[in-house]
């Protein structure tokens, strides 16, 4: 038998004997993840779905959710990509502290984020008071407030993703661009950004998904006004108390959106590494 044959045989043999101590928890884990989704699909009031989903309130909530999540992603892109560049490509004192601060919303309970936003941007907040008196701008309990709350929670996902892509990109391409006459900004725009586009895309989708599902910071900072600040997750939570069937229907819509995102990203994340 050749060495290759032996190796193939060994792998086949190893594959045929999966240790029970690994297999059992693995299957349990799988069931744990899939069962709730199955429950949602099984208990869904399929016959009542058309009427449940035809109500204007559902579409208002969905529309608001999509608009706010997309706006929050836009804000995250405009502010987060330069921030990621700063973290990945420049050296300044306290860079590590700044980086830790940027990632803090990742681990911070969203409700705490909402409270913090109120204290900063609320009518009596440190910045909010000034915004109110100087410009008459009020952010909390408005649709803009929803976007701010979602961006606060979602932007770190984008920053981390883009920073990782930047660190993986060879900075010598920027040097090559410089020798050809490109300023640092031009090099970033024409060379770096196209090269890290997949990372920016992945980060944007991640941030968008996070913003779409955002609950805690939104309800704390923006409240729960139908048509104005009531996004899908808020609507689901509220419906659960009055009309469980409507809650299930709304949940299914969110599930469908999530699956659609996952399918859109299958090349990136669902392929076996």
């Amino acid at each position: 038998m050749t060495a290759i044959d032996t190796a193939v045989a060994a792998r086949a043999k190893r594959g045929s004997r999966i240790p029970l101590a690994l297999l059992l928890p693995a299957l349990l884990g799988l069931v744990f993840l899939v069962l709730p989704l199955a429950g949602l699909l099984i208990r869904a009031p399929w016959s009542a779905m058309p009427s449940e989903l035809s109500s204007a309130a559902v579409w208002d909530a969905l529309k608001l959710s999509l608009i706010c999540a997309t706006s929050a992603t836009g804000v995250s892109l405009v502010l987060g990509v330069p921030l990621a560049w700063l973290l990945a490509r420049t050296e300044f004192p306290g860079r590590r502290v700044i980086r830790a601060l940027v990632t803090l919303p990742l681990v911070l309970p969203p409700v705490v984020g909402g409270v913090a936003l109120l204290l900063a941007l609320g009518r009596n907040g440190i910045v909010g008071r000034w915004l109110d008196s100087a410009f008459g701008i009020t952010l909390p309990f408005t649709t803009t407030g929803v976007v701010i709350a979602e961006a606060f929670v979602a932007m770190p996902f984008l920053v981390i993703s883009v920073e990782g892509a930047l660190r993986a990109a060879d900075p010598r391409y920027e040097e090559a661009a410089a020798t050809l006459g490109a300023s640092r900004l031009t090099a970033f725009r024409r060379v770096t950004l196209p090269m890290i586009a997949p990372g920016v895309g992945a980060g944007a989708v991640l941030a968008w998904a996070r913003a779409l599902g955002e609950f805690g910071a939104t309800i704390t900072f923006a409240g729960n006004f139908p048509g104005k600040t009531q996004t899908m997750p808020l609507a689901v939570y509220l419906a659960m108390e009055t009309d469980p069937d409507a809650a299930i229907a709304l949940s299914l819509v969110l599930l469908a959106v999530s699956v659609a995102v996952l399918v859109g990203l299958r090349d990136r994340w669902m392929s076996t590494p």
Binding site: Y173, T179, P194
Partner: peptide
């Protein structure tokens, strides 16, 4: 970027 200098890099660094 302001020098009239052209560089051919070792691994070319073509975009």
């Amino acid at each position: 970027e302001r020098r009239p200098v052209g560089v051919v890099f070792q691994d070319y660094l073509l975009f």
